[in-house]
């Protein structure tokens, strides 16, 4: 069951996030004061993956035709767009608002409500992935400490607040009938299973083949998330093995 929150609470949560993210060292370093606790959660997440998520995802991959999986993925991406538009607006990034609005309209009309990605086939601009964690970053909120969240995995403190807000934000709720809303969260879960199956080699490589899967997952998450938020590699953060 989903608890609906009045949207007027959103600014309040934003304000909480503003003050609550622990200021750490500069953003290219690892700030993980809760490492001991995080490692316990990591062990739990790994057991969950090994015993449940990975086998189910592989079963899903075998049972579900590629085209059906693609349609589910398209639909999940499509339904995420209204929230992304809200976030791009908050970030005052109107170019992204336009790109995603056109894409959403196109796939709603020509992609059977988002089951097909007509926009990509037609060679339109790629969709813009964004979320409330990025919005907070744009407003200058520090990344905060590193967290490994049960079930969800690696996050920073800032992104953890972002997930909560994105969940409450859910602009689709205002448009979709209640019956359709019941579908969106299971759809999200199925889409994630599809991803777990599709990237099985890479994900299993990190979790089960690296020497210290906790440290590897943390490094990969932080580097990739900073790249996503900056939109590019920060030249000052590049490795320089010739320095000494």
């Amino acid at each position: 069951m989903k608890i609906r929150m009045p949207h007027s609470l959103l600014p309040l949560i934003g304000a909480v996030a503003l003050t609550a993210c622990t200021a750490g060292p500069p953003d290219q370093e690892i700030f993980d004061p809760d490492e001991a606790e995080n490692r316990k959660v990591h062990a739990f997440n790994k057991a969950l993956d090994r015993n449940l998520v990975a086998p189910v995802a592989r079963g899903y991959g075998k049972a579900v035709p590629v085209r059906a999986d693609k349609a589910i993925n398209n639909l999940a991406n499509h339904l995420a767009i209204p929230g992304e538009i809200v976030n791009s607006t908050l970030q005052l990034n109107f170019e992204d608002v336009v790109i995603n609005t056109i894409r959403f309209a196109t796939n709603t009309v020509f992609g059977l409500g988002g089951l097909f990605d007509f926009a990509t086939v037609a060679g339109m601009e790629e969709d813009v992935d964004t979320d409330f964690g990025k919005t907070l970053a744009v407003y200058g909120i520090p990344e905060g400490r590193y967290l490994e969240v049960p079930v969800f995995g690696p996050r920073t403190e800032r992104e953890a607040y972002g997930i909560v807000v994105d969940y409450l934000l859910d602009p689709l709720g205002s448009f979709l009938p209640a019956s359709a809303q019941k579908v969106t969260y299971p759809l999200y879960v199925v889409d994630k299973l599809g991803d777990r199956n599709e990237y099985d080699d890479a994900i299993s490589g990190v979790l089960y083949e690296s020497e210290d899967s906790y440290a590897t997952a943390r490094s990969i998450y932080l580097q990739n998330r900073r790249f996503d938020i900056g939109g590019t590699v920060n030249l000052d953060d590049l490795e320089d093995p010739y320095a000494n």
């Binding site: 590897t216 490094s219 990969i220 580097q223 998330r225 790249f227 996503d228 590699v233 590049l238 490795e239």
Partner: peptide
């Protein structure tokens, strides 16, 4: 790759 440095990893 997508911001993840092989050297650092």
């Amino acid at each position: 790759i997508e911001g993840i440095s092989m050297l650092r990893l």
